[in-house]
Amino acid sequence: MANIHPTAIVDPKAQVDASVTIGPYSIVGPHVKIGAGTWVGPHVVIEGHTSIGRDNRFFQFGSIGAINQDKKYAGEPCELVIGDRNTVREFVTFHIGTVQDKAVTRIGDDNWIMAYTHIAHDCVVGSHTTLANNTTLGGHVELGDWVTVGGLTGIHQFVKVGAHAMLGFQSAVSQDVPPYMLVDGNPLSVRGVNVTGLKRRNFSAERIQAIRQMHKLLYREGRTLEDAKAAIDALGKQAPAAAEDIALMQRFLAAADRGIAR
């Protein structure tokens, strides 16, 4: 049997691994799956069609898998899917998806999600992200791997944030943020490249130099976006060590449909 506190309410239909711990006064609904080694603290509500992987930690007063805040929602069996080894702090709200999108909200692995964070319907959060206190993600937002979001930051619905980007404290994000960039402010401004983050992840000097060059092409030479894209395509032949980084930027710019933060 899982280590379930006597005051917790776990529906008999829930699929809870025997190694899971569930704290006092927490509630687990009938359509919930919780993987091995996960710890659920006190006063956490996990409901809806929610699947949680291994070795996660949910601190007190979280609302996980509640119905979304979309007025069009009509009770469809949409989902919330959470990966492995995530740390989820106090008072978070994660909502299920909608049939207007993929019908699932998805959170990856190894994320550090701090207090009062809101992840709305149909969001896709990658892995290894850090979301500081009061981060707010509107519906359909996509965050790439290793994204860092500063406290009190709001991200508008449908915005995409590329991998390894850093969003500074109290930013208002209403356009797509390309990978590797360092941005902040209201209105949002691109300040440079997230060099500190890249160094912490052991990016080589050659890769960082190529990323700096992509930043220069996008933001420092007065180019149109289409002209900058063409120059980034040409850069791939000049910087083979950064081929994957350049390809990531190319894919992101091709998919950006809200316009990029400039």
Rank of each mutant, 00 (worst) to 15 (best):
M1F: 12
N3E: 14
P6A: 12
T7D: 11
I9C: 11
V10N: 06
V10C: 01
P12R: 09
P12S: 13
V16C: 02
V16S: 01
S19G: 15
S19L: 07
G23M: 05
P24I: 00
Y25N: 14
G29W: 06
G37N: 09
W39H: 13
G41V: 00
G41H: 06
H43F: 15
I46L: 04
I46M: 11
G48W: 08
R54S: 13
R54Q: 14
F58I: 10
A66N: 12
Q69A: 11
Q69W: 04
K72W: 02
Y73K: 04
Y73S: 08
A74H: 13
A74K: 15
A74Y: 04
G75T: 07
G75Q: 12
E76K: 05
E76L: 08
E79M: 09
L80A: 10
V81C: 11
D84V: 01
E90Y: 05
F91S: 13
V92R: 00
T93N: 13
T93A: 15
T93D: 05
F94C: 02
H95K: 02
G97Q: 09
V99D: 10
D101T: 03
A103N: 13
T105N: 08
I107H: 03
D109N: 15
W112E: 01
M114G: 01
M114I: 12
A115D: 11
H118K: 06
A120Q: 03
A120T: 12
D122Q: 08
V124I: 14
G126S: 09
S127L: 07
T129P: 00
A132F: 09
G138R: 03
H140D: 12
H140A: 05
V141K: 04
L143K: 05
V149N: 02
V159Q: 06
V159A: 08
V159N: 05
K160S: 14
K160C: 10
G162S: 10
G162Y: 11
A165V: 04
A165T: 04
A165E: 04
M166H: 12
G168I: 06
F169E: 13
Q170P: 00
V173S: 00
V177M: 04
P179R: 06
V183Y: 01
D184W: 04
P187I: 06
P187K: 06
L188T: 09
S189G: 11
R191P: 00
G192F: 07
V195I: 15
G197W: 04
R201T: 07
N202I: 01
F203P: 00
F203M: 10
S204R: 08
A205Y: 08
E206S: 14
E206N: 13
R207G: 05
I208W: 06
I208Y: 08
I211P: 03
Q213F: 01
M214C: 14
K216W: 10
K216C: 10
L218S: 00
Y219S: 02
Y219C: 03
R220H: 09
R223H: 15
D233M: 09
L235Q: 14
Q238H: 12
A239N: 09
A241K: 13
A241P: 11
A242P: 12
A243E: 13
E244A: 15
D245L: 02
I246G: 06
M249K: 01
R251I: 00
A254V: 05
D257I: 03
R258H: 11
A261M: 05
